[in-house]
């Protein structure tokens, strides 16, 4: 393993029309760490996440300056493939959205798109992904029933399994537990800790506590500015910036 970062963000500026949501931000993400990017609403956390797999391309009026490198390669280079990128950098959205098809087909959706047709191979991938997302035992008997019948927490784990099936290198999670009950949240956080062995994980937590619980390192954003970054334990015990400590201790946000 080299010292090279998995993802580096360099001098990133991001605008929706004239409104700047990320201001000259630079950031390094190491392989196999869980990094949490947190901050109050409208701080640019979701946007930062989306620049890492180009999931903002279709938003009209959005504009970006700066570079995002994956393993040292600029993902915005003119010869870079968005499709390849999204297979390497998967994303789980805030609202669990199973596609209108069976549980099995949901998980097999990505692999099928990349051309895997063999039934046995697909079954293997689906089972493995569902196991990794800690949902296999709950759905193994109804793989062919429709995905939207599951509970909210199960749906979100299904969505995680769906991303895992792509065999990505990086997983982005955008407030994956915001609508979920504490038990479901605990299950998802548990699976994240196991997934860390194989993947690099960047999470925008839905609250400060989650940032403290799951992440190795944390980055605090405020109104598009990177205020502070460091190991979670250090930052939470002893924040350097007053704004960070105010936010962590709940004085605003």
């Amino acid at each position: 393993m080299t010292d090279q970062s998995k993802i580096s963000v360099k001098n990133l500026n991001f605008y929706y029309s004239k409104h700047q949501v990320i201001k000259n931000l630079s950031l390094e993400v190491k392989a196999n760490e869980i990094l949490s990017v947190f901050g109050p609403a409208n701080s640019g956390t979701t946007t930062l996440l989306r620049t890492m797999n180009r999931m903002w391309d279709i938003i009209p009026g959005a504009r970006m300056e700066g570079e995002v490198l994956l393993d040292g390669n600029n993902i915005y280079a003119s010869n870079a493939s968005t499709i390849e990128l999204r297979r390497k950098v998967g994303i789980v959205f805030e609202i669990p959205t199973p596609l209108p098809m069976s549980i099995f087909d949901n998980v097999a959706y990505g692999p099928r798109l990349s051309g895997i047709k063999n039934k046995v191979a697909l079954e293997e991938i689906v089972e493995k992904s569902l196991r990794m997302a800690v949902i296999w035992d709950e759905v193994k008997d109804r793989l062919h029933s429709i995905g939207s019948r599951l509970s909210g927490g199960q749906q979100q784990r299904l969505c995680i399994a769906r991303v895992l099936a792509l065999e990505p290198e990086v997983i982005l999670l955008d407030r994956p537990c915001s609508g979920l009950d504490p038990v479901s949240t605990a299950k998802i956080e548990e699976s994240l800790r196991q997934l860390k062995e194989q993947f690099t994980i960047i999470i925008v937590p839905h609250n400060v506590q989650q940032a403290g619980r799951v992440a190795d390192r944390a980055v605090f954003l405020l109104m598009g500015d990177l205020i502070e970054e460091g190991p979670t334990a250090v930052m939470f015990a002893n924040p350097k910036d007053k704004r960070t400590s105010d936010y962590i201790t709940g004085r605003f946000g």
Binding site: M55, I58, R87, F93, T97, L99, Y109, L113
Partner: peptide, 23 residues
Amino acid sequence: VHPMYREVSFSLGGTKWQTMIKI
């Protein structure tokens, strides 16, 4: 069609054509 379906399909590496045909 739920707008998130498009986004999910793109995020899983789907192209515009695949998204159209499959979703």
